[in-house]
Nucleic acid binder design. Structure first.
Length: 809
DNA sequence: CTAGGGTTAG
């Protein structure tokens, strides 16, 4: 091999007169360069330079060799230049160029050369190159067409033809007969015993088995038969068969093949382990992991990432830490960087186990980070709600992909920053990135947060145009968006038109019905879900219980609560108990609610006491109410809701002295009430109104209308209810100004600005007050309009002087 | 041929 390294004495070469000897010399040297691989490629460029310097023009096989070497060393432009200089390229030159274009990802240029090649000079190798190029360009159908063409034209397929064409079949993966036909052709040819061809055939069978158009069992049977009869099985044969079974979720068959394996292949171990990880069989994962060690099978990066992701998914921080320690001890000596993928698996292990700080340490210590590392860190901060940190990471990223944007958009949306999320979604598009369906889900959620129905509808339209309308995540987001924008019918329609549903879809729809006060329909849908064999989870029960609570279905709710543990084996958490207490307290069964609190397996938290307190306010149980309030003052002294509920409870009973005491309390402790505000969308713009608003540009028109309107409402029987004065109190002097609650202003604005037939949808950040509730009932009658109000807890539909809540608070 | 980063429901 030292010849390739030799220095070429130019003087000697120049003296050579005999051109053919010179050519032979060059040819021999280039052959050596070719055989040496990448390092030889560099030398070949030097030889070429030498040719130019000495006036030697490369032709024939020397030129072809140079083209080949240049394309393999990613100097495609040199190869192209040499090729273009040939007046009448021979078949080798053309084939070489086809292969070059294929390798550099330009299948169209390869095709151009192929098509310009006259049939009389074509050969099998040339077809092979072109078939491979089609596979490379993901056009399996074109590859199969070429294969058929070459057989029609009586070219003899060889091993390479078969492997490429079989790869094409695996790519299109639609028809079983095609695999079987090809199998016959292979057997009849001389390649029926060649392992690489049989591997390709095996892989085609297995890939076709995942196509929705064929029955996988018969294809797997054929694949298995082929596999069992293979005279020589190599690494690829074993792993293809094992991963085939794993991807078919048939772990038993996979294991059977695995156990019959006569060699120790890390890849096979990894495939088996990843199957167990995906099915959540943690015990099996660790069993395999330990067995590898005792048998002396060396772990690779895939083994580690597999095992670590099992730990992450099951929050097995102790196991994860052990593996981490093992890696540090065995694999790398800090600060040497270990495989990036392992670093990434560690980052995700720590944050998924709630240790974001540790994750950050690993992130900071890593010498090399890739996009996955950055995205993992971004997700970590989003998951714990550290939005500022997440933003910092996002801004710092030198490279972002659709996934990065998706995480950030939905992160913002989840934390209530709907406007910012939508801005980011648009920025993403203006950066020239095509949002995927997950990115859309984030944007749609933002519309739900903002209650912006128009923007939501527009996104829905875009979704359909881009062909994402069958996406599960986007569909689920749409259900919630429509429901939270007050368009329950649209939500239901989205639910019904989805091609497939998962538990999230059902939960979303049940929640939607519940929030809109249709408790009976919500429970009906829940029963339907069970009939579809979808198992309820802890969120299903949260939504079903709230639905029952809003609709006063006390006994049903209790029944569902009982079934949770007894039938479905889900242990109720604090939120479940809080909903049970709410259900009982709201319906006036306060003693029963109290019993639940006393017999619960844990100490009641603030959610539960608040549920009890609001029940007491509703049913005027002062003693119990005060006790609940005291608990809340201990637990969350700065929370304004407690003071307001308590004050309203006293006000309703006319105990004004106590009201004053509560208010003084609040002032002394420096607790500020969250100011009430309401908003609605008019012509794609969101209009916000505050209590006693003086900011909105058209507020005077609203007041003017309201003044006359109230008189008309009084004629219909509306009596302002002064006991709700305190609900929305901001300061002393506002006490008398009942008529200026923000929800009233927003509804009146809607009456003034929206078209006659349009439904008015108003959103409020706090709970609607009793007087407004009453007034809006009259408004809906006086104007014959449908008015929908979403407060912090639920939706109310006002129509013909009635509210969908049936006055059940 | 295998792994590490995403979404939607309360």
């Amino acid at each position: 091999m030292s010849a390739a390294k030799a220095v070429y004495p130019i003087q000697i070469l120049r003296q050579t007169v005999d051109i053919s000897a010179l050519a032979n010399n060059y040819a021999a040297k280039l052959l050596l360069c070719h055989q040496r691989g990448p390092s030889g490629h560099h030398i070949a460029a030097g030889i070429h330079a030498h040719m130019i310097a000495s006036g030697f023009i490369p032709r024939g096989h020397i030129r072809n060799r140079l083209i080949d070497i240049y394309s393999k060393s990613s100097r495609l432009s040199y190869a192209e230049k040499l090729f273009d200089e040939i007046p009448e390229p021979d078949i080798v030159a053309r084939t070489t160029m086809i292969a070059s274009y294929s390798a550099s990802g330009s299948p169209n240029l390869a095709k151009e050369i192929f098509e310009k090649t006259p049939l009389r000079i074509r050969d099998t190798v040339c077809y092979n190159a072109m078939i491979a190029s089609c596979c490379h360009g993901n056009d399996g159908h074109a590859a199969v067409r070429l294969f058929n063409e070459m057989r029609r034209k009586r070219f003899e397929p060889d091993c390479f033809t078969f492997t490429s064409t079989l790869a094409a079949l695996a790519l299109i993966a639609t028809r079983e007969e095609q695999c079987k036909q090809m199998h016959c052709v292979v057997l009849k040819s001389g390649c029926g015993l060649v392992t690489s061809v049989l591997n390709a055939l095996l892989s085609a069978y297995v890939k076709c088995a995942f196509s929705p158009f064929v029955s996988s069992s018969s294809l797997f049977a054929s694949a298995r038969k082929l596999f069992d009869e293979m005279p020589v099985k190599d690494k690829l044969s074993w792993t293809t068969m094992i991963t085939g079974h794993v991807r078919n979720k048939d772990l038993d068959s996979a294991r059977e093949v695995f156990d019959s394996m006569d060699q120790d292949l890390v890849v096979a171990w990894n495939s088996m382990i990843s199957g167990y990880v995906q099915e959540g069989l943690v015990v099996k994962v660790f069993e395999m992991f330990r067995k590898m060690q005792s048998l002396g099978v060396k772990y690779d990066d895939f083994t580690y990432t597999n095992a670590l992701s099992a730990c992450a998914d099951w929050s097995l921080i102790l196991h994860g830490k052990q593996i981490h320690a093992y890696i540090l001890r065995i694999e790398a000596k800090p600060p040497t960087d270990f495989m990036v993928s392992v670093t990434n698996a560690l980052i995700s292990l720590y944050w998924k186990c709630g240790k974001v700080h540790q994750a950050r340490n690993i992130f900071d210590a890593a010498c090399t980070k890739d996009l996955v590392s950055w995205n993992a860190m971004l997700s970590a901060y989003v998951s714990v709600g550290e939005i500022d940190e997440a933003k910092a990471i996002f801004d710092e990223m030198y490279e972002k992909n659709v996934l990065s944007w998706t995480v950030m958009i939905s992160g913002l949306a989840q934390h209530g920053l709907g406007e910012e999320a939508l801005k980011l979604f648009n920025r993403m598009k203006s950066c020239g990135l095509e949002p995927c369906d997950y990115a859309f889900s984030g944007a749609i959620t933002s519309c739900a947060v903002l209650a912006s129905l128009e923007q939501g509808r527009q996104l829905h339209g875009q979704l359909i145009r881009l062909g994402f309308d069958s996406s599960l995540s986007a569909g689920n987001a749409l259900i919630t968006m429509y429901a939270r924008c007050g368009a329950l019918d649209a939500a239901y329609k989205a639910f019904l038109t989805m091609p497939c549903l998962d538990s999230v879809s059902w939960n979303a729809m049940i929640a939607a019905l519940g929030q809109h006060g249709h408790g009976a329909k919500a429970t009906e849908l829940y029963e339907e879900m069970l009939e579809e064999y979808i198992l309820p989870d802890r969120i299903t029960f949260l939504t079903v219980l709230s639905a029952c609570s809003h609709a006063g279905l006390v006994d049903e709710g209790k029944k569902y609560f009982e079934s949770m543990k007894e039938v479905y084996g889900i242990t109720p958490c604090e939120d479940h108990y809080a909903r049970l207490v709410d259900l009982l307290a709201r319906s006036g069964r306060l003693t029963e609610a109290q019993n639940v609190i006393q017999t619960m397996p844990f100490e009641a938290g603030s959610q539960i006491w608040e549920a009890l307190l609001s029940g007491c306010r509703l049913h005027g149980n002062m003693d119990l109410g005060v006790r609940a309030a005291e608990k809340l003052f201990d637990m969350i002294p700065k929370h304004d809701g407690t003071y307001i509920l308590l004050a309203n409870m006293f006000a309703a009973a006319g105990r004004w002295d106590s009201v004053a005491t509560v208010r003084k309390f609040m002032r002394d402790r420096g607790v500020k009430k969250e100011p009430g505000c309401s908003w609605l969308e008019v012509e794609k713009k969101v209009h916000v109104f505050l209590v006693d608003d003086a900011v909105h540009p058209e507020i005077h028109q609203v007041y003017k209308y309201l003044e006359v309107f109230v008189l008309r409402l009084r004629e219909l029987g509306y009596v302002p209810d002064t006991k709700y004065v305190l609900h929305d109190i901001v300061s002393e002097q506002k006490e008398q100004s009942l008529s200026t609650h923000s929800e009233k202003l927003a509804v009146v604005y809607g009456l003034l600005k929206l078209p006659r037939e349009a439904t008015i949808r108003v959103f409020k950040n706090l709970r609607i007050c009793g007087d407004c509730h009453n007034a809006i009932k009259f408004m809906s009658k006086a104007e014959s309009r449908e008015i929908i109000v979403r407060d912090v807890k639920r939706f109310r539909h006002f129509k013909d002087g009635e509210c969908s809540c049936g006055d059940y608070w």
